[in-house]
Nucleic acid binder design. Structure first.
Length: 424
RNA sequence: GGUGGGGUACCGAAGCGGCCAAACGGGGCAGACUGUAAAUCUGCUGGCAGACGCCUACGUAGGUUCGAAUCCUACCCCCACCA
């Protein structure tokens, strides 16, 4: 199978070095992508490079996921307008460990022929002596060339933020990673987002200067939603792969809400569905868009990969109940399970005594609205539902008669945002 | 260093003594329509009360005035031109 063609067909290819296609067709190649451990979890924006490694492995090559435990200590200036905050060493290692686990859901580490591999550049960067580094690596870099890099130029032009020596050196370290991976594992390919092009080619040059083999680079396009919005952000913030940060239910909902204009493109990028399936789904979007078949498939595929069959089933079940039928007839156990992934708060039972508590106050206290005023605005606008029925005026109070099964209050804001209040 | 222009809510941008919690546009949220889509239309978009009202907010700190985003002084920052 021609991997470059596969990339191109799926919209994963922004650019590649001249000899990359030939090298990939000539035999097994080991390639890597670096993941930046600024946070302890990857988010959906990282899925493009992850899928890059998945396709690499499926084509019979060996993928390496490099977790930047060392470079995370430094910070890449690419695409950043300001000097980054530095991570301390313990945090960087902790984050690297979290990312390692998430990647394991996508890649096969036990293959006999072409297993995936994890690497952490802290292994070599941590040991690196400054003088040795300058002598062996630094001498191969021309400051003139480094200064010409777009990412560096932009920061130099901005008198305000400038660029520190530390960040300026980032491209040396990333290049050095490539060299180390080549030495240790015979890695001859680096992939990454298109903003990484400069760093990747610098690495290729370094390996060549140090007497290594010809290496190659492939970069992915930057991903946007069709509205021009940032991909992977919702009102709730970043969509993470970590179920403790973004529940499987919300993760599933994120994909289900993909626009018609984006959904086929996303299916191509984020799932392994083949052309016949894609064509059928594209047809479904055109013919009967209200069924959302493509969105459902997208959500199911990605959620299953990241959160497993269990996570997917819970998310689908919760979605059916929350957007399908009514809350009536649900047992206490059902409610508990369905809302397990939905934001929830506790409330003292005594708050409902006597006249009860004003709904707006409850909402603000539970974090459903930023303030009481905002909660009242939402109610006035008709956007708040208590146990499935619309709150009609701002004076609504919640009393002892409201709780379902004497334990639960279900508050909904807008069409999609649910909150569960459990009485203690 | 000099001269001129400017710093207004999430962003852009009006206002230039009271009618300013601040026009307008964007963004965001909610409603209607739909398909948990897009487009469109409507409403809302500082806080506490929600009846009046009170508090905080137009770079920072003072001042003038019954009253300041608006006038004065100092300071900080940005931009343009000159050196």
């Amino acid at each position: 199978m021609d991997m470059i063609d596969e990339f191109r067909r799926r919209g994963l290819l922004a650019d590649a070095t001249e000899h990359a296609p030939a090298a990939l067709n000539a035999g097994q190649v080991t390639g890597y992508i670096g993941f930046d451990p600024t946070a302890s979890s990857l988010h959906v924006g990282s899925l493009v490079p992850i899928m890059g490694l998945v396709h690499l492995q499926r084509a019979g090559h060996c993928p390496i996921a490099l977790v930047g435990g060392g470079t995370g200590l430094i910070g890449d200036p690419s695409g950043k307008a300001q000097e980054r905050l530095l991570l301390d060493r313990a945090r960087a290692e902790e984050n690297a460990e979290g990312i390692r686990k998430q990647l394991a859901a996508f890649l096969d580490f036990d293959s006999r022929t072409n297993p995936a591999r994890m690497a952490n550049n802290l292994e070599w960067l941590g040991e690196l002596g400054f003088v040795d580094f300058l002598r062996d690596i630094g001498k191969h870099f021309s400051v003139n060339a480094m200064l010409r890099k777009e990412s560096v130029r932009r920061r130099l032009a901005d008198e305000e933020s400038g660029i520190s020596f530390t960040e300026f050196s980032y491209q040396l370290l990333q290049s050095y990673d490539f060299w180390e991976l080549n030495r240790r594992y015979g890695c001859t390919l680096q992939m990454g987002g298109s903003d990484q092009w400069g760093n990747i080619t610098a690495g290729i040059d370094l390996v060549r200067r140090l007497g290594g083999p010809r290496c190659h680079g492939i970069v992915f396009p930057l991903l946007t939603a069709s509205g021009g919005a940032k991909f992977g952000k919702t009102e709730e913030g970043t969509v993470w792969l970590d179920p403790d940060r973004t529940s499987p239910y919300r993760f599933y909902q994120f994909w289900l809400n993909a626009e018609d204009a984006d959904v086929i493109r996303y299916l191509r990028l984020f799932t392994l569905l083949g052309e016949p399936d894609l064509a059928a789904l594209e047809h479904a979007v055109a013919e009967s868009p209200h069924r959302r078949d493509a969105q459902r498939r997208l959500a199911a595929e990605v959620t299953r990969t990241v959160h497993g069959t269990d996570g997917l089933e819970r998310a689908e079940r919760a979605s059916r109940v929350l957007f399908g039928g009514s809350l009536e007839g649900l047992g206490a156990a059902d409610i508990e399970e369905i809302f397990a992934d939905v934001p929830s708060t506790g409330l003292a039972r005594s708050a409902l005594d006597g006249p009860g508590i004003e709904l707006a106050v409850l909402m603000a206290d539970a974090g459903m609205a930023a303030s009481r005023s905002e909660a009242r605005r939402l109610i006035r606008g008709g956007g708040v539902y208590l146990n499935g029925s619309r709150a009609t005026d701002t004076g609504v109070r919640v009393g002892a008669a409201h709780p379902l099964h004497e334990r639960f209050l279900v508050v909904r804001v807008g069409k999609k945002r649910y909150f569960l209040v459990e009485l203690d």
